[in-house]
Simulated scan of single mutants.
Amino acid sequence: MKNFTFNINDNNYSVRIVSQEKNTIDLEVNGTAYTVKMEEELKTVKTPTLVRTASKAALEPVKIKTSASAAAGKITITAPIPGVVLSLNVKVGDTVKDGDLLLVLEAMKMENNITSEKSGVVTAVNVGVGQQVLQSEVMIELE
């Protein structure tokens, strides 16, 4: 485990701690094995761990403002807030229905499910996984 060198009254002692169990320590001094029992048990220092519990509230999809161009019949899905795209669930040519999950956007350390408010076919995906988006940036276009 650990090696130490002590100088006591001009004599050098090489001490190697072999093992420790509760208050009993096995060690070697200049090659001779000893078992030492401490009067008090050594306290172990524990590093605290952060444990997060899962939220009990049901995840609710983020409602996205869609812009529909009357002439072309296009629907654009824009970012509600600045964030980073964690996952994309659609690609160009996919048919989506009302309420389908399009992508997951991480914003302010929260994962936001971005869903479709209308049915249609994906005509463009303007973002990629890991990409940062700004508020109101067009992420997906439907027709």
Rank of each mutant, 00 (worst) to 15 (best):
E41D: 14
K43A: 12
T44C: 01
T44V: 10
P48H: 05
P48V: 00
T49N: 09
T49V: 15
L50C: 02
L50P: 06
V51W: 03
A54R: 11
A54M: 12
S55F: 07
K56C: 01
K56V: 13
A57Q: 15
A58K: 14
L59R: 06
E60P: 04
E60K: 13
K63R: 11
K63D: 09
K63F: 09
K63Y: 11
I64C: 07
T66N: 08
T66Q: 12
T66H: 12
T66C: 00
T66E: 10
A71P: 05
A72E: 10
A72H: 07
G73Y: 04
K74M: 07
I75T: 03
T76W: 00
I77P: 07
I77C: 02
T78G: 03
A79L: 06
A79S: 14
P82R: 07
P82Q: 07
V85Y: 04
L86R: 09
L88Q: 02
N89R: 03
K91A: 11
V92N: 08
V92Y: 07
G93T: 08
D94Y: 06
D94F: 09
T95W: 01
K97L: 10
D100C: 04
L103I: 06
L105D: 07
L105C: 06
K109E: 02
N112Q: 02
T115D: 02
S116Q: 03
K118Q: 12
S119Q: 09
V122I: 13
V122D: 02
V125N: 01
